[in-house]
Design a protein around this nucleic acid. Structure first.
Lengths: 239, 239
DNA sequence: TAACATTTTTACCGGCTGGTCAAATATTCA
DNA sequence: TGAATATTTGACCAGCCGGTAAAAATGTTA
């Protein structure tokens, strides 16, 4: 058995926190035996090992800049052995992105129409900020992919992501219509939250340079959370 | 004469608009004959041609993902000919980044302590947004470089950028002290403006997917500007 | 135009690239 | 246990990679 897409990625989610609501993009059923032949124990661990290594390399150097040799060595594996589990470099990349997209969008999926706008938005911001702090490689993986034109997840963005944003923008719009929120374009509000929160992962080095923070110092995240909630929920300028 | 850093990059600035105040990082004096030998007409045009091609390639694929062959062919030049003007791939990348950093930070340099906070901030946002719209490749070039850890401009971030942000954060702080602005961390305000404005260049494909905008349609920038000024200058939530 | 300097081209290099193949090894299970 | 299957390895390949050397072509200027 070779080259059937791996399904297990338990250890990438390090702290689900508010518990991702449900799966939507792509089937991630790991143990629930579907049509494909059952996975070997070795298969499961090795595919996870490869995807972990690939995340490390792809998130730093992007698709073109990454090499199979470096992924293989990061996975502590020979290159042909790696290619026994995945058919190509592209296969690894697409598998990784597809698997992680769900995790990545979980906070937005959590946005509830029947909740209090203030609470819902601040929860969303906090959740996204926490993902930047705890899953910076995942953030950079997506940033790299989108930067080069989303050549491997273009259709996913145009269909699944588009639909999700439309759905959640409608919720925000309903809050505006109810007079609970100042009139604004809901989709750009979502963009602004993405931008500001993911910035702390994607531009980590720049932020640390400006703030003179050591690599392991994450104390600026508290300031970030305070500013962003102030920004999105209150007014910045008093006068 | 070979491999002395090129100095001319006139055509990369397409629309300076509020006129960049002064140069700071790196000397960009093109015609003002300094110690180096005078540049040939051919040198000037070819170095500009190479940097333009390099911007195209580096901004899409990052440093590791880009190749000299692709840069050379984009510059309509043979690879050895390209290497007659620059000593290495790294040389091209660093030259490009250094030259562009000044342009990139010009809007922040423009922030004036004696101006009205509302006007100064909204001008800054508008200026940054316009750069995302008109110079998206430059934005992506920096995003790629920072994503992979700023290996080529690390010192510039830690010294020049740090100092600039400190200086401008002090201005914002003075507005807060004067009661003109709600108390907040000024440096994170700057981060938030960077994040939200640059997002429209760096994540262009994603935004177009969500909004279903054609490649040449830039109508969403008006909505973006409206939301961002609302966000940074007014209050989002009324209740 | 002739001497000189600058620019471009051709041919090339060793190492890395994504990927293949077949043989060797380990694992599973009747 | 042993046969069947799953996994790992080493040897290899064509093409690309960043970069070099030297000659050929072009431009400049006295």
């Amino acid at each position: 058995m070779r080259h059937n897409r791996p399904e297990a990625m338990s250890d990438i989610v390090k702290d689900p926190l508010p518990a991702t609501p449900d799966t939507a993009f792509g089937d991630t059923g790991a143990e629930t035996g579907n049509a494909h032949k059952q996975k070997t124990r070795i298969q499961i661990t090795n595919e996870a090992k490869i995807l972990e290594a690939a995340l490390e390399v792809f998130s730093k150097d992007g698709f073109r800049g990454a090499t199979l040799d470096r992924i293989a060595s990061a996975a502590d594996m020979s290159k042909p052995n790696l290619l026994y589990y995945f058919s190509s470099k592209e296969d690894i990349h697409i598998t990784l992105l597809t698997k992680l997209l769900d995790l990545w969008l979980a906070p937005l999926r959590n946005l509830r129409a029947d909740g209090d706008p203030r609470e819902e938005l601040s929860l969303y911001i906090r959740h996204k900020l926490q993902m930047s702090r705890q899953l910076p490689r995942e953030s950079r993986l997506f940033a790299n992919e989108v930067l080069r034109g989303a050549q491997h997840i273009g259709p996913l963005l145009k269909e699944d992501l588009h639909d999700l944003v439309d759905e959640k923008a409608a919720i925000i719009q309903s809050w505006i219509d109810a007079g609970k929120l100042a009139p604004c374009d809901p989709r750009h509000v979502i963009f602004a939250i993405w931008a500001t929160t993911q910035h702390y992962a994607d531009f980590d080095v720049q932020i640390r340079s400006v703030l003179r923070r050591d690599d392991d110092d994450q104390s600026h995240y508290a300031d970030a959370e305070q500013l962003l909630t102030t920004l999105f929920l209150g007014q910045l300028i008093k006068d």
